[in-house]
Design a protein around this nucleic acid. Structure first.
Lengths: 144, 144
DNA sequence: CTAAAACCTCAACTAAACTTTAGGTCAAGC
DNA sequence: GCTTGACCTAAAGTTTAGTTGAGGTTTTAG
């Protein structure tokens, strides 16, 4: 069969049928309908779904993914150039997230080392109370 | 003043009053009441809040934080030993999260390098469709 | 031809972590 | 003494990423 039913796409992509409906409602994927009003997907949709899941796993929200995919023709698999743009942008985000967590981990290990006997100076343990006035300083906490 | 009002705690901790109410409702922090039924906090609550935000920033859910804090006396600042236990546990979680993201980043950079001209073999780009049957294989996608 | 499996839509529900609103009380400044 | 700002509670709303359920249609297998 040239076109895939929703159940088939679900099976092959590992994404629930309800999630596929949901993605469609958000404009992330598209489908045609057959005579009986059932969804029929082009094979390319699997790539698109793969990309969606990959981006999600990197921490990109569906809204952002939708924005990025909006420029592509319906369900066309992104070209190498498209993908390069997306992956570079999202990769940079990824890097920042990783860096933030690593910073966090470093402070944390320092904290385990110090045994937190000196809670007044521990960077992980001291948010704004003593440090708010101290300029940049320990930057770890209370940041969205 | 020996005790802090909710507004004061909000100002010093950078956490909204509504969030403090919310944390209290979840048992994460505690307060006494004054004659007029207003919350009065001990200074230690600031430490507790700092810890909550630190843990959250590490990706720990409030429910988990609540579980960890439940063993401590109300609003006592955690002892060094308590903190050691928590930070070790959460640190391990952090490590795993970082590792997962790094793996992701590595696949992604590989993908940028390859220009995704060969989408059939790209590990980031290929989820279950061609690879589901292939045992462990590229493990990157579709994992909670 | 019929029964089961798959599909359809729409609305409501879930979870986390809060915020907002409404209606009312309390405290502080002038 | 009164107004304004801070505070109270309880309920409802918000966002993200879906899932679940009800009621009905279509497709497929025997």
């Amino acid at each position: 069969m040239a076109e895939l039913s929703v159940g088939e796409v679900a099976r092959r992509s590992g994404v629930a049928v309800s999630a596929l409906h949901f993605y469609e409602s958000k404009g992330l994927i598209h489908s045609q309908r057959n005579a009986g009003n059932q969804r029929r997907y082009r094979r390319e949709v699997l790539r698109r779904i793969a990309l969606i899941r990959a981006a999600q796993a990197m921490g990109v929200s569906l809204a952002e993914i939708a924005r990025a995919l909006a420029v592509l023709p319906n369900d066309a698999a992104p070209s190498a150039a498209d993908w390069r743009v997306m992956s570079q942008q999202w990769g940079a985000q990824l890097e920042r997230r990783i860096a933030r967590l690593q910073q966090m981990r470093d402070s944390l290990t320092g904290c385990i080392g110090c045994g937190c006997l000196s809670m007044d100076v521990c960077p992980l343990y001291n948010p704004d109370d003593q440090l708010a006035h101290a300029g940049p300083g320990p930057v770890i906490l209370n940041r969205k």
